[in-house]
Every structure is written in C-alpha cells, then in structure tokens.
C-alpha cells in the first residue's frame, strides 16, 4: 500500500502543479477572439477551396466577423444551406447563392481527335503541356491526364475517352479544377439547363477541322440564330455570354444549328439542386 502511495502521490502532486500553472497561464494570457468566429467557421464546409475569394475557410470566416459588409453568399460549395446558417449567426439578411458547376470546354475525345505523339513522361497535364503543348493534335484541347480530377474534392471529374468529364451531380462548384487546368478549359456556370460550347480552340476553322472533328470552326451560324445575341465568335471560337443567355424563346437553337456539334445542351442540375 505504501509503495503505491509513494508512487501515486508525487505524480498527482506534479500533475496538479502542472494543471494549476496551465489554468493560470490560460487565464492570464488569454487572447481575445471574436466569439462569433468559431461559430462562423463551423458553418463553412472546410474545403479551403478559395471559391469565395479569401484564403481558405478561415480567411472567409475572419472577414465575415471583422467586416459586416462581407457578403454571406460567397461560399459556392456550401450553397444556400451555408448562406442561411451564416446569416443566422451573423444576424444579417439571407442572400441567395448562385450555385455553379464546372464544365469542360472541350469535346476532343478519341472519337473526334487523335494523339500526335505517344507521351511517356510525367503523368500530369502540367508536365505534358510543357512538351510541345501536349500529346493531342489540338494544342488547345484537354490533355486528359487528370490534373483537374486530382484536385477535385468531390471526385466529380473522371477522365473518359481521353478527356475530362465533370459529373454535375457531384460538382460543388468550388472551381479548383478551373484553376488547375493548364489549358484553362474549365469554367464555372450557373447550374441550370443550358447550352455549353465544348471547344476552346482558337485555331482557324480549317486547322481546327483538320485536328478535331468536334471542334468549333467559327462559322458563326449560332451567332445568327441566337435570338438574344448571346453568342459571339471571338478568336475563332463561339463564346456564350450567360448574362444574355436566358429566357430563350427558341431554346438551344444554337446547338441545333451547330455544324460540328460542339454546342451541347447540358443538364447542369448540379449537386446542390439534386440535394435540396
């Protein structure tokens, strides 16, 4: 018994002393923190994707606490759910989040285009891009090595038939893939049913035609049929101005008129819409 006590008592005493010192230190040297910060931070999904424009979720939470003018609807992956929670915690009015999904502006899969070289190097798009602009015959197209799929936090991107495909049902719209793509083929669009130009080739029509049967040749047919004037061919590729592309009386006329079929109707009902 005595042996146990001589062992236990010193350890307990040391423990109590340590605890007392820690308690005193944490009281004396407490750092003042905005008490809303942990609550605000908890609302955010913690993906640290940077879609809000701040350095990660911590940065956004800090900005929300310190500056009451910071909009609460910047978290795209969190969507309306997070915006609602944020407006509750901060006591401001709820603002709707424009949910977005990523789309790949390239249709150069094995069916439409060919590789010009057999690339054996480091298996990332960035490395392949350095070597004569990639292995595909179109230097603007998807390199197909999956840098975007690697950064996707939701595994919403798969590489099929040599190009990246985004599954909008899983896409949370964080935009990490868009930042990663060395050819800047991925952009974020609002997640409603709409038309998408699946080509980014700035080559002249004849060149595009030669390397890829699915590419935009810049024929301007879509420009003419669009009732809202939302499509413009710039740098030999059709670009849709989504500000104007809505309430279309003749929906997807552009897609039907497209000679190469590079304008596609995408049901972009994304992750958020399916979930909520």
């Amino acid at each position: 018994m005595e042996a146990i006590l001589t062992a236990v008592i010193p350890v307990v005493i040391i423990g109590v002393i340590c605890a007392a010192v820690l308690v005193i230190a944490s009281k004396v040297m407490a750092v003042k923190e905005d008490e809303r910060f942990p609550k605000v931070r908890e609302c955010l999904p913690g993906a640290n994707c940077g879609a809000c424009g701040y350095a990660g979720c911590d940065g956004y939470a800090k900005a929300l606490c310190e500056n009451s003018d910071t909009p609460t609807n910047l978290c795209i992956p969190g969507a309306d759910g997070v915006a609602k929670q944020l407006s509750e915690v901060l006591g401001v009015e709820f603002a709707d989040v424009v949910e977005q999904v990523a789309v790949v502006h390239c249709s150069g899969d094995c069916e439409h285009t060919q590789d010009k070289v057999d690339y054996q190097g480091i298996a990332t798009c960035k490395a392949a891009k350095l070597l004569y602009g990639g292995k595909g015959s179109c230097s603007y197209g998807c390199l197909g090595l999956g840098d975007c799929a690697a950064v996707c936090p939701k595994e919403a991107i798969c590489i099929e038939d040599g190009i990246a495909h985004v599954n909008p049902k899983d896409c949370i719209g964080c935009g990490m893939c868009a930042k990663e793509c060395p050819n800047h083929l991925i952009s974020l669009v609002a997640d409603v049913k709409r038309v998408v130009v699946a080509c980014s080739s700035k080559d002249k029509g004849a060149v595009t035609r030669k390397v890829c049967s699915g590419g935009c040749i810049g024929c301007k047919k879509c420009e003419k049929v669009c009732p809202n004037g939302a499509i413009k061919v710039t740098d030999n590729v059709a670009v849709i101005d989504y500000e104007k592309c809505h309430d279309c009386p003749d929906f997807a006329a552009c897609a039907r008129s497209c000679t190469t079929g590079c304008i596609v109707i995408g049901d972009l009902s994304g992750y958020h819409r399916v979930k909520h």
């Binding site: 010193p10 040391i14 340590c18 605890a19 010192v21 820690l22 230190a25 944490s26 040297m29 750092v31």
Partner: peptide, 23 residues
C-alpha cells in the same frame, strides 16, 4: 516514475509554451 512523470511534464510544458506563444 521517470517515464510517466516526463510525459506529464512535457505535455504540460508544450501546452504552456503554446499559450505563451499565442499571446
């Protein structure tokens, strides 16, 4: 008692250092 006391002291020490650094 070396091992257990050392663990105790090191853990408390690191916590203390963290509090001091934070401040």
């Amino acid at each position: 008692l070396q091992t257990i006391v050392f663990i105790l002291v090191i853990a408390a020490l690191v916590q203390l250092v963290e509090i001091v650094l934070k401040r």
